[in-house]
Every structure is written in C-alpha cells, then in structure tokens.
Design a protein around this nucleic acid. Structure first.
Lengths: 351, 351
DNA sequence: TCTCTAAAAGACACCGGTGTCAAAAGCAAG
DNA sequence: CTTGCTTTTGACACCGGTGTCTTTTAGAGA
C-alpha cells in the first residue's frame, strides 16, 4: 500500500524501490550492489534485473554517509602548466573510471599566505579519501603534514622521490636531462648555456643536477657566464637569452629548465638573427603544447604525466581500484621521462 | 552516559556534539548553520561559539541526503585548450568560493559514440545540481536535452548565444574579429588571407562571419585562393601557410581562427624567410599561452573566459550564490572579448 | 497577576544507504 | 524425520543532517 514506489514523474528510484520490485529486503539489495559473497546466485540475478528495470543508481551521498567515508579524491594543483594538469587529471580519470570514485579538482594559490587554511577548509568540508599534490605544491611539507593530520591520504607527485614510496610518484628527470645534454655533447657542443628553474623548486634542482652530471661526464664545467637564473616564465627566457647571446663567446647550445623559458630564448635568437639550430641549439623541458607550436619545433623532455596520474591513483587508493585500468608496472614509483628530439638541435656550426 | 561526544582521537565533530556542548537541540544547531531567522541572537551566539570551539564543519553528504539535493556542480569539457578550461574553472571557483558548492570537473570525449552514455552515467551517479558545458560540446543539442531530461540544470558557454539566456553565456566574438580585421584594413592591407576553424563548430562560423563582415565593410571580398580550411590544429596552420605563402600574389596579412593555427602559419613564414610582421601580419584568436611564447608575439582576440566562468556559475545556480563574488554586469549574458595587439601586426610592406 | 499571541526551541520522523546480529532456509548426516 | 551446521536473508538501528509539527518561552496588553 505504501505510496507508489516508482514515484510520480521522474523521481530517482531508491534502494527501497528495487527491494520492493525484487521482493527482497533492502539489505539484500545492498549486498548485491556491494558484491557481497554471501548471496545466492538466484537472488543476485533477480535483484540485478530489478536494478536494471528501474535504472537504479545508488545515491552516492547516502552511501558516503552510511560508509562513514565518501568516494571523492582531490587533485590539488597550482597550475604552472595547464596542459600538465589536464593530462594528469586524465590519467587519474582513466584509473578511477570503473570505480565508484569521483574526482574533485582544486587549484590552490601557492603564493597566498592563506593557502594552508584554504586547503584545510576544503579538505574538512569535502573530506576526500585522499589528495594528490601536483608539483610545485607537492614539495610543500606543511601541506603533506596537513593531510596527515586531517586523516586524508596523500600522494606527492614530483620529479624525484619526495617522500616514502607510499606517498610518492615521480619521474627520473635527472637522468633524462643528463641524457639530453649528453646528446648535445656528442654532437660536439662544448659551450652549453644553462637557464635554471626557480630557487627552492625540487624540479629545478633535479634538472640542474642532470645538466651538471652530463657536463661532468664529458669533462666539462659550466662557465659562470653561461649559468643564468630563471623562474619557468617566458620573460625569464627572454632575459637569459639577452645575456647569453651577446657574450663575446656565446654558447652554441642552451639547455632551458622548461619549455616556456626555451621559447623565450628562441625568441631572442630570432630577434637577433641567430639561426636555430644552425647557430644555436636549444633544449627545453616539459613537452608543453608550446614545444610544437614554435618554430623550429623544440627538442624537450616529456614526462609521462598521464601515466603518472594512473600511478598516483593506484598509489593513493589501491583498495578502491580493483579491476580498473592498472599502471604498467605497479612496483616502481618512478616512471620514465623521455627525451624528444625535434628540430631545435643540431651540431655546432663550424667557426 | 552516552559515549564521549568529542570522541577519541580525531573523530570529526558532528552536529550532535555541537548541540550537546551548546546545550541545545541539534535542530537549533541546524538553524544556525542554515541562517534561519527564527532564532534568538543569544542562542545563535552560543551555538556559533560551540561550533568554533569544536571546529565543526557540517558533513556535506549528510546535508545532501537530508536536503534531497547535493551541492555539486559539474564542468563538462572536451579540452580543446587546457588553459581555457583552467581559466574558466578558476572563474567558477571565484564565484562559488563562499557558497556551499563544490565543483566536479569532467572531461568528455566528443569523438566517442558512447559520449552521451558516459555523460548520462556521470550525471546519474553524481547528480550535480547543474552542469556547465564548455565549447565545443556546448554546441551539442543532445547533451543539453540529456541534462534537461535528467533534471540537471545546465549552461552552455559559447561564442554566440546558443540557447535562451537562462542557459547561455557567450562572448561577442564576431564583433571583435570584425574589429581586429578592420584594423588590418585600416593599416592598408587589401589581400588578407583567412584560415577557417573546423566545419560544424559554431565558434568557427562566428569568427568567419566577423572576418567577412570586416572585409565587406571595407568593400573587399575574400579571394577563393586566400580562403583556407582548418581544424584549430597547429598542423592545419602549417598546411594553410604552405599554400597561402607560395601564391603568386601572397596575402600581406592572414587572420587565423585560433592561435594554434596562427603559430603554424608563422612557422611556415619563418621557414620561408618571410618576415613577420614586415612582410606578413598575422592575427590569431584565443590569447592562448602560445600567443606570447612565440616570436613575434601574436596579436589575437582574448575572450573573457574567467569572467565567463563567474557568469556561468551565476546563471546556473543564482539561488546558491547569494553574497559571493558577482559578475560585473548581471544583466547581459554576452561578455566582451577584446582584441589584443602585439608584435605580429604592421602595415603592409611597400612593393 | 493573568491571558493571549508570536517567536523560539525541541521531538521525532526521515533522507537512502550500510552494519550488526538474529532468524530462516538449505542441506548432510544420523 | 530430526538434528546440527552452514549459508542466506531480514529486522532494526544508525550515519549526520533537515522538515514538520508541537511545545515552551517571552513579551505585550488587560
């Protein structure tokens, strides 16, 4: 007798509707939804049929409440590079596709002094199971501590291990930068300029290490006048270019710690009539969209950001991801970046 | 007797804890949370204090359940341009900052034939209050119909009104393209090439209209050999450039329907030794990061994407956004794009 | 002081699921 | 046909809030 269970109009069917239609208790329906093993095949089939007939979809809010845990994971980033964020996000979505999880994306303002409070408020309000921290904010230890103190799991994504493997997904940037710069050396370059990333960034330090390693391997050292500071911005590339390219003995190649700065250096070269790669080889880092949208196309290092998203999801919430897209090699937390050769690199011109 | 209400360790305080501490019923606490007017100042203050003492944050899942409505809005996009998505998202977040809403971001694959099913599943599962559709998927009428049929509000974001104002936030791309091309004409350009966006895209059609309008206003027509198809990709710009720049009488200026294609055309110009802007002026559209990361910097049209995010949020869920960041002019659904002049434009060289 | 009314506060069911534990059903062995 | 066990199912409380309706309190007027 109780009110018409399928409801008037388009009310969303509930577990009670399914139970009524299948002639079982709601708890039994719950068991089917959650793939409990203590249920007979016959009942399971009947309930499944009722679920399909009604087009029942469990209410995630109600489940979250009853489970005392919701099914959200958060992606915190400070957008240094939109494409990177989106690619990573795509990887995470690949990984959680067939799970019950949903993804909340949250930009944070690293430069704000209220940053920690903002994140705290966000985490307290949404109570995600876990949070993924993209660089550069992944390098912030206070943030990781905050997650810990709130009982929110976290994974830090970075260019080198930042924490124990349980909390970390990283790529081998240092090695690949060394490889890339090694190729410059192999081509015959001896005066190789360096444009650094911002001070205090782990990624910048790793790239610098890789660069210096490659020089050292070749028995070279970095002349002070070839070492330029930078901040990952295009304008820093311009400034570095303006200095490096007017030297009495200018470099024949320049490694820039990211693509944006490499684009800046390249602009200066164009403006000064310096041919790339004829007179100057340039290598960047990130394989951002810009890398293939400038001329000549930029040789750069691509980090496996989408795969890192998959990996990060599996590191963060392995218990929620049975039977979904898996990372290629679940045992290593470090994924391989690759050097992508394009037209901005050639041997030094004979002079 | 009842278990220690503040709980062992770090259990999140609930409304019951607050009620107990303040010595009132949970319903009264609920009234304070929801700013009910039927409550005495004294009680409100006492409850507020208890809330602060405990650091109580209402459980959004429980609220969602009780309200029979959650506090989620969704952003659906098919990532044509990562920066655009992120800027729009930022605008939405600006708008919902002080509200109870949270934002779910969801990329969809426009080219998949399961796209509608995917979106349906997503909406049924998450049941957001509303969805924002970014171009190009905002142009998909089936998607809008799907939202309607699921009782999910929606807003379509586009380069021109796509629907009634209740469901639409747009920019005046056509006018601004006409303005930009008008400047080329004013500089003395007569042979102006055109690289179109993909067929079937509203944005491409609008930009084309604006281009043709400007020509018509100047009494010019578009010569067939100066009209190139495109698809918003860099390679399409390359192809268009390869054709336009080898003509017996090449254009002195080219309008490209987006920045990426403009970058392609510019690459071809560089490769052919054609000076930009000396021999060729180029205008793009989007003001993407690339626009300022190529040399010379690209003149382009910037659409007010972040402001559109704010506007979209207010159009979608005005009832949830009292007292938060407001759009500048709440009455128009159409926002103004602007022409951004940079170094890629000059008068035609005398020949 | 007492009555009446409006404002404030509370009791209790309910939103749609899950956990616990008890009851029912199924089945092999006696 | 029982007994005793295991498997399957269900009753009921509960998660943490809100809606409805009732009761209590406060204040104005007689």
């Amino acid at each position: 007798m109780a009110a018409q269970k399928t409801g008037p109009g388009s009310r969303q069917p509930t577990i009670n509707d399914v139970a009524a239609l299948a002639g079982v208790s709601k708890k039994t329906v719950s068991r089917v939804i959650n793939r409990s093993e203590f249920i007979s095949e016959k009942t399971r089939t009947a309930v499944q049929k009722a679920i399909e007939t009604l087009g029942f979809v469990p209410n995630p809010q109600a489940r979250a409440l009853a489970f005392r845990r919701n099914f959200l994971i958060a992606l915190l980033h400070d957008n240094p590079n939109a494409q990177t964020v989106l690619n990573f996000q795509q990887g995470v979505l690949d990984a959680i596709k067939d799970s019950d999880l949903a993804l909340l994306v949250r930009p944070v303002d690293r430069s704000s002094d209220k940053m920690l409070d903002d994140v705290r408020t966000f985490l307290e309000k949404q109570r995600p199971i876990g949070a993924m921290l993209l660089p550069p904010i992944s390098e912030n230890d206070e943030l990781a501590a905050l997650c810990d103190s709130l009982g929110v799991r976290y994974v830090r994504v970075g260019s080198a291990p930042l924490d124990d493997p349980l909390h970390c997904v990283s790529s081998n940037d240092r090695e690949v930068v060394a490889e890339a710069v090694g190729k410059l050396v192999a081509l015959g370059h001896r005066r190789i300029g360096f444009v650094r990333g911002p001070v205090g960034f782990r990624s910048a330090a790793e790239r610098e290490k890789g660069f210096l390693e490659a020089l050292a391997d070749a028995g070279l050292t970095l002349a002070p006048e070839l070492n330029e500071p930078g901040n990952y911005r295009f304008t820093a590339g311009i400034e570095a270019g303006e200095k490096l390219l007017v030297l009495a003995e200018p470099p024949t190649a320049i490694f820039c710690s990211n693509d944006e700065m490499a684009a800046g250096v390249m602009s200066v070269a164009h403006a000064k009539g310096i041919s790339v790669p004829g007179d100057l080889s340039i290598i960047g880092f990130d394989d951002s969209p810009t890398a293939t949208q400038i001329w000549p196309a930029l040789s750069t290092v691509r980090w496996p950001i989408r795969e890192m998203g998959v990996r990060a999801a599996h590191t963060l919430v392995p218990d929620f991801l049975t039977g979904t897209v898996k990372p290629a090699d679940p045992d290593t937390a470090t994924l391989a970046s690759t050097f992508v050769e394009r037209q901005s690199v050639a041997g030094p011109s004979a002079r």
